[in-house]
Design a protein around this nucleic acid. Structure first.
Length: 572
DNA sequence: GCCGTTTTCGGCCCGACTGTTTTCAGTCG
């Protein structure tokens, strides 16, 4: 049983308890437990069986939850959960994803109308049944229908890169207004989560009206959901929801802190304020009725005796303790990156030639790259066999000589086959400067076989790095099942690096795994996996993911010079 | 459900906005 599986059982339990109308703090306890377990780097399964350890060491896990975790690990499920599931079908849980429908209303719809699927919900709304229920009305019914349509069109979350592009566009237009003094994205977008459910924009203005009006009229907006004086929610065309808040300049820092979140981080920050006899809300920090801070985030954090904390870390995963101890990491930045060790050319499925890719890399300030086309197993991409690969390498050497100031490593993205062998023979791999080993096929194999395959690669003396470890595609494909701790230990033991694949749909390894790898001293390489010149521009998203994992430049191997980087290679 | 030298009981973050209300519950962030 994986930690994430245990976490999602607790999350489901929390959802069901909400439908039931249970005590909200009890529900929060389950949600906290879900996160604690999911974020844990060591396997909970192992922890359960360790006689020297207790689950109650974990924050937010008391005796009751510890027992429940044990039950889940030993039986694969939880009696309490099974019982609640019989009370509310899964379709009722799906309804919670719709805007305007919370646990109270979803439960009411189920109890009064027997609605247990989204399809039944749609039918009932179209038939006008919903507006007849007490507490509901025509508007609510319409909101539900629109929510269903939007869910079908866009899904519930969008990639960070997509959301950021949309947000940047709106920000640029709002910035033109003379009344807009400051503007920034907030929420999960500012925290650089890999996917976001909505875009939060915060504006400091002397007058809120022009900003509110501009958003209402904006060409990207397809529908206005809510519009008050200082708060507006809209749906973007083919995109997610966008929320705008306008605050006076003296409250900007407090509002930015507040709307950046995360909720879990803010709960702790607010508790610190209360402990100090202060009140913290989005307008400032108050002692009695007197505002003592709020114009900048630095002021707000200083009021609760903390240094400013980078948004990427604000998840209540230990950052507040680090801040208190003055041990916050100096997070890696895009400017620190000197190399990109994963990219493709027309030799396989890239769209640019060797020369074009080198040139594009140089334009982006890179000092070294590795050209790493596919191996033969990836027939769809015209993958390279030994002969073609050797010829490709000769060509790379030749073309690279035409460039000054950038080094080009001869690499390969070598498949780890379903039978736990590598797609190219050792004598070929031995000639490479940089070998990426990856899983592309058979991702649904059982965990044991996935482990066998990864170990083959990790134990090979020719493999430099494991690329996109799980093979997941965010929101579309879960990726290979594996025991994070087990694989990280093997990488550390054999001196194999791990990739943060910067492609917005991959971002693999994820933030939590990156943090765990950092703790084990495994060098992380952030690569674009570019298939075109423009593909090199996604590097920033990999850097965001690294920052969320608390990585400093020293933890990221490709912030080093090419010479230093080569020294990290086992065969270099 | 968790937590704790002010506590083993009674707290647990806070405000905007909407819709359906007759003064506020529900949702959202």
């Amino acid at each position: 049983m994986l930690n994430t599986e245990i976490g999602s059982l607790f999350d489901e339990l929390a959802d069901l308890l909400e439908l039931q109308g249970a005590n909200s703090f009890r529900i929060r306890a389950y949600r906290n437990a879900a996160r604690t377990v999911a974020d844990l780097t060591e396997s909970v399964e192992d922890l359960v069986d360790d006689p020297d350890r207790s689950l109650t060491e974990l924050p937010g896990i008391g005796k009751d939850l510890a027992d429940k975790i044990k039950t889940i690990v030993h039986t694969g499920t939880l009696p309490q959960l099974l019982e609640l599931r019989t009370e509310f079908p899964t379709g009722v849980l799906d309804m919670l994803k719709l805007p305007g429908l919370g646990p109270k209303k979803a439960a009411l719809l189920f109890k009064q109308l027997g609605i247990s699927t989204l399809m039944m919900l749609q039918a009932a709304a179209e038939a006008g049944e919903i507006a007849k229920i007490k507490g509901f009305g025509k508007k609510t019914e319409q909101t539900i229908l629109e929510g269903l349509q939007h869910l079908a069109e866009v899904g519930s979350r969008v990639f960070l890169a997509e959301a950021k592009a949309l947000a940047d566009y709106v920000v640029r237009d709002l910035q033109q207004l003379p009344s807009v003094l400051q503007i920034e994205t907030a929420g999960s977008l500012r925290r650089r989560r890999e996917s976001v459910a909505d875009i939060d924009l915060l504006v400091a203005a002397c007058d809120s009206a022009p900003a509110m009006e501009l958003l209402s009229q904006h060409p990207l907006v397809s529908k206005i959901l809510v519009r008050g004086e200082t708060k507006q929610s809209v749906i973007l065309r083919h995109g997610p929801q966008l929320d705008l808040r306008v605050v006076p300049e003296e409250s900007y820092g407090a509002a930015l802190q507040y709307f950046t979140g995360s909720k879990e981080h803010n709960i702790v920050i607010r508790r610190r304020a209360i402990d100090r006899g202060l009140k913290l809300n989005e307008y400032g920090v108050y002692r009695d009725e007197q505002r003592i801070a709020g114009a900048t985030e630095e002021e707000v954090y200083a009021a609760v005796d903390l240094p400013w904390i980078p948004p990427e870390l604000r998840e209540n995963r230990g950052e507040i303790d680090l801040a208190e101890q003055g041990r916050l990491p100096k997070l890696v930045e895009l400017e620190d990156i000197r190399g990109d060790l994963h990219m493709h050319t027309t030799a396989t499925d890239g769209t640019a030639s060797i020369g074009e890719m080198i040139s594009a890399a140089q334009e982006r300030g890179l000092k070294y790259i590795a050209i790493t086309d596919h191996s033969k197993r990836v027939t769809m991409a015209n993958g390279l066999d030994a002969d073609r690969l050797r010829a490709h390498w000769r060509e790379i050497e030749k073309v690279a000589q035409e460039f000054r100031g950038i080094e080009v490593l001869r690499g390969i993205e070598c498949d780890i086959l379903e039978n736990a062998t590598l797609d190219l023979p050792d004598d070929v791999l031995a000639e490479a400067d940089f070998v990426i080993a990856v899983l592309h096929y058979g991702l649904k194999q059982p965990k044991e076989q996935i482990h066998r395959r990864l170990l083959t690669a990790i134990e090979s003396p020719y493999v430099s790095m494991i690329g996109h470890l799980t093979g997941r595609l965010i929101g579309r494909r879960q990726g290979a099942q594996l025991d994070r701790d087990f694989i990280l230990k093997a990488c550390a033991d054999h001196g194999v690096m791990l990739e943060i694949n910067a492609h917005p749909s991959r971002l693999d390894i994820d933030d939590v795994t990156a943090a765990a790898a950092r703790e084990r001293g495994i060098p992380i390489v952030i690569n674009t996996d570019a298939h075109s010149q423009g593909g090199l521009d996604v590097m920033q998203y990999g850097v965001f993911q690294a920052r969320r994992g608390g990585l400093e430049a020293k933890h990221v191997a490709n912030t080093r010079t090419c010479r230093e980087f080569r020294k990290l290679l086992r065969n270099g």
